[in-house]
């Protein structure tokens, strides 16, 4: 009897310790999440408006005016930018993203894009791609918290140059969209060539500006100083903003996912402790009952 209660007690203690850790991690994740969510919400308006502006331009401007607007004749090569987290213990966050990315990659391969290069932001995604023996051309360091859009400048330059040089016919970014703290969705967005697609903005909170999108505006745009100069500045900046926003969305999603995973772990630990305490008490009571039975048995034998 003594042995079994001792073992159970040890288990309970060990689960209690694990719970303390998961609880602490939950709290840390919650604090980081708050910060990340603030960042993502405040820059979303800018990213959305910028994207809408460009979509309007793309729909109305002669696409031959700028090489970034012009699709290549054949699409056979692509660069995919995969945004994941550096660390694990965040539930299905990374695996969902990677699954989604793989599905897209296969679909593109089937439609003729056979030469695919991957650019990785976040260690976990890099590891997953390495396991699948995908071609990772660059891995960018990802900070725990994105600071400014300068974080993605190098990446932007790389893909824009690659596209202009004809190295990539398509550039897409894959990230986890932050919908609510309880819901994040892996999403894939084509950056280049800029297609006049129906609005598929990053995020879904506080978006949709119908007045901006509608209206009869067939007229040509006036560019000052010149179309080339304006688009030269605007388009790369837009790509940068979109990448930055994707990074922010992913960061917010990551911390939310981790907080949720840690909360589940803490809850599970509590449940286990309850169950084990019950078993422990039963074992203890059984031991006492048996001892009493032995004593009274012994006494009866003496009489």
């Amino acid at each position: 009897m003594a042995v079994s209660t001792k073992i159970i007690r040890r288990r309970i203690r060990s689960i209690g310790n694990t719970k303390k850790i998961t609880k602490a991690m939950e709290m840390v994740a919650a604090a980081k999440m708050r910060k990340a969510v603030n960042a993502v919400l405040s820059s979303r308006a800018y990213a959305d408006v910028a994207w809408q502006t460009v979509m309007q331009l793309v729909a109305r401007v002669d696409r031959t005016k700028h090489p970034l607007l012009q699709p290549h004749e054949k699409t056979t090569t692509a660069a995919f930018i995969l945004v994941t987290s550096n660390r694990g213990l965040c539930g299905g966050f990374n695996s969902r993203m990677v699954t989604e990315a793989n599905g897209y990659s296969r679909a593109r391969r089937a439609s003729g894009v056979t030469d695919q290069s991957w650019v990785v932001l976040g260690r976990k995604g890099g590891e997953a791609l390495a396991r699948q023996e995908q071609r990772v051309v660059a891995e960018f360091e990802k900070q725990d918290m994105a600071q400014s859009s300068a974080d993605v400048t190098a990446l932007t330059t790389m893909v824009v140059k690659g596209y202009l040089a004809g190295q990539y016919d398509q550039v897409a970014v894959m990230y986890t969209d932050f919908v609510t703290p309880l819901r994040q969705e892996p999403r894939i967005k084509q950056l280049l060539p800029l297609e006049p697609a129906p609005d598929e903005t990053l995020g879904s909170v506080g978006r949709r500006e119908p007045a901006l999108v509608s209206g009869p505006r067939a007229s040509e745009y006036l560019f000052e100083p010149s179309p080339a100069e304006v688009l030269d500045q605007f388009l790369p900046r837009l790509i940068e903003i979109q990448l930055y926003q994707a990074l922010l969305e992913s960061t917010a999603s990551e911390h939310s996912a981790r907080m949720l995973a840690m909360r589940n772990a803490s809850d599970a630990a509590t449940d286990m402790m309850w169950g084990l305490t019950l078993v422990y008490n039963q074992a203890r009571q059984a031991g006492i009952t048996r001892e009493i039975a032995e004593i009274s048995g012994g006494k009866a034998a003496l009489e």
């Binding site: 007229s219 560019f223 000052e224 100083p225 100069e229 500045q233």
Partner: peptide, 19 residues
């Protein structure tokens, strides 16, 4: 303030993009 000097936009301005 734009690259080419200060401009004032009034209603019914033609579509414009500038730095």
């Amino acid at each position: 303030p734009t690259r080419q000097g200060q401009i004032t936009v009034l209603p019914h301005h033609i579509p414009l993009v500038s730095l």
